[in-house]
């Protein structure tokens, strides 16, 4: 059961509930699969930095805002403690989170919000956690459009410490109109902070996006052209009558 439950971890952006329903249906809702799904959901929600809604506001679940067991806290200046049901990703507020938020964290949080407004689509979310010495930045950019048969997400996670930004950015796109196409790309980022954390991240992420566009162009120009031609070298479609006749001549010769 753990094997099939692990497919939950690879659900495309915005499709995790559909994947869960499918797994339940295939295994006829056995108790052991529900248990396996619960364990898997707890693991993958944190690993994949999944979004949840707490008191009407979106935040991520991650190792950075984990308190204990199923308890996490929200980002921002007035953090709230909440409990998550990992399988349904429903949350329940459990009062204010009483630890004071570091001023450095709040400073980067407001920079990130400004950055999201300038470069990301509306559904995107940015969260900063940490303390005065070390901050963790999570940026989830997402565009879900199942009615147009696609869902896409970028997931970036950075650690800011000693004037360095280190982390990873990943892109995951699912296109599924009469098919199933998936793009995955990732890149490690390590940069010295210049001017501000936000400007450093912005420049690194633009580089990643340029690199991704370049890779796609290169794949189109080389691999795709080599794997199957658009037209034969002759620039003419196949002459099927000749293709058959040519074969028949060969066969006659062979029979002689």
């Amino acid at each position: 059961m753990a094997d099939i439950a692990s497919l939950l971890g690879d659900a495309p952006p915005g499709e995790i509930d559909a994947v869960k329903q499918d797994i339940l249906e295939i295994t006829q809702k056995s108790n052991s699969v529900e248990k396996a799904l619960e364990i898997q959901a707890g693991k993958s929600n944190v690993e994949q930095l999944r979004l949840v809604t707490v008191a009407g506001k979106q935040t991520v679940v991650s190792e950075f805002n984990h308190i204990e067991e199923n308890y996490f806290y929200t980002h921002g200046s007035k953090p709230v403690k909440f409990e998550i049901n990992h399988l349904s990703r429903e949350t329940k507020v459990d009062g204010d989170y009483d630890k004071e938020v570091s001023s450095k964290v709040l400073e980067i949080q407001s920079e990130i919000e400004e950055y999201l407004e300038a470069h990301y689509c509306a559904e995107s979310v940015g969260c900063v956690f940490g303390d005065d010495d070390k901050q963790h930045v999570v940026i989830i950019g997402r565009k879900l459009s199942p009615q147009n048969f696609f869902n896409g997400q970028t997931t970036a996670v950075y650690t800011v410490a000693n004037d360095n930004v280190d982390g990873t950015i990943k892109a995951d796109v699912h296109y599924f109109e009469e098919g199933n196409v998936r793009l995955k790309s990732s890149n490690n980022i390590s940069a010295k902070v210049t001017r501000s954390v936000m400007k450093t991240i912005a420049s690194e992420e633009s580089q990643f996006e340029n690199m991704l566009n370049q890779s796609l162009r290169a794949l189109n120009d080389t691999e795709f052209k080599q794997i199957r031609r658009q037209l034969p070298v002759t620039r003419q479609p196949v002459d099927w009558v000749q293709a058959i006749a040519g074969y028949n001549v060969g066969k006659d010769l062979g029979n002689r």
Partner: peptide
């Protein structure tokens, strides 16, 4: 031939557009 054109559009056009929709290299403001 039709499917190759479709694959071309989806693999190299559609995916890039979606990434571009999520994050803009230019400053949207």
């Amino acid at each position: 031939n039709r499917m190759r054109a479709l694959l071309h559009e989806v693999y190299f056009g559609k995916t890039r557009d979606i990434i571009g929709d999520i994050r803009s290299i230019e400053n949207l403001k």
